[in-house]
């Protein structure tokens, strides 16, 4: 069972780095949004530095959505979903493997790239590490919540937009705790640990619910 899980994880990772996989697009998209902000709000370093954590989190959230619409849709279209549904690996674990592959090719990269992109927004050096840490802890929740929407719309032709509309409101708690943890690291009433632990809890719950709910959605008859 571990072998099947790892094989599926590996296949999805290979697919995402090969032509048409689009993992580099996620990073470029992240960079684009972040680069647009100084043009839109003006080159005031104080203002930018204050809103930088929020911008980076929103950009990460949008970049995560980018690859999610194809998470299950590609498999539903070409028939590999049928095989996954008939495999000895439980569909919940198959969904978990696909979520893990998606996170490794998006959330993890975003967390690593965030400090560098923070420079564009004159993010305070003291906030760089905490920001990366919150993205590292929080992006699994984005992937997992997004997976539910992706599974529900897997068989729809233009499911991506609908899926985004379905899952964005559910991502709000993650966004709130992600940004507030970064703000807390810069000083303020609450210690950094409190919102970070909440963020971790949200991620853990989302991973379990996401695997279970997307498997249930994928089992619906076509």
């Amino acid at each position: 069972m571990t072998r099947a899980f790892l094989a599926l994880l590996r296949r999805d990772l290979i697919l995402s780095v090969r032509i048409g996989g689009g993992f580099e697009l996620v990073l470029i998209f992240f960079l684009m949004i972040v680069a647009l902000v100084p043009f839109a709000v003006g080159p005031d370093p104080n203002l930018l530095s204050r809103i930088a954590p929020a911008i980076l989190w929103i950009a990460a959230l949008l970049a995560t959505l980018l690859g999610l619409d194809r998470l299950f849709q590609a498999d539903a279209e070409d028939g590999s979903l049928d095989m996954l549904r008939m495999a000895r690996l439980p569909l919940e674990l198959a969904a978990l493997a696909k979520m893990a592959a998606h996170w490794l090719a998006s959330g993890l990269l975003l967390a690593l790239a965030a400090p560098a992109l923070g420079l564009l927004l004159s993010l305070e050096p003291a906030a760089m590490l905490p920001l990366s840490l919150t993205l590292l802890v929080g992006t699994p929740a984005l992937t997992a919540i997004g997976a539910i929407g992706a599974a529900l719309t897997a068989r729809m032709r233009r499911g991506g937009l609908l899926s985004s509309i379905l899952v964005l409101p559910l991502m709000l708690p993650t966004l709130i705790f992600g940004v507030s943890a970064t703000q807390a690291a810069l000083g303020g009433g609450v210690p950094f640990r409190t919102p970070l632990l909440m963020l971790g809890a949200i991620s853990l719950i989302a991973i379990v619910l996401g695997a279970w709910a997307s498997a249930a959605a994928l089992r619906m008859d076509d």
């Binding site: 296949r11 290979i14 697919l15 090969r18 032509i19 048409g20 996989g21 279209e77 070409d78 028939g79 590999s80 049928d82 095989m83 008939m86």
Partner: peptide, 14 residues
């Protein structure tokens, strides 16, 4: 069961 449907379940880039 092993089901081979009309959709072949192949990925172009693999």
């Amino acid at each position: 069961c092993c089901y081979i449907g009309v959709r072949d379940g192949l990925k172009g880039s693999l």
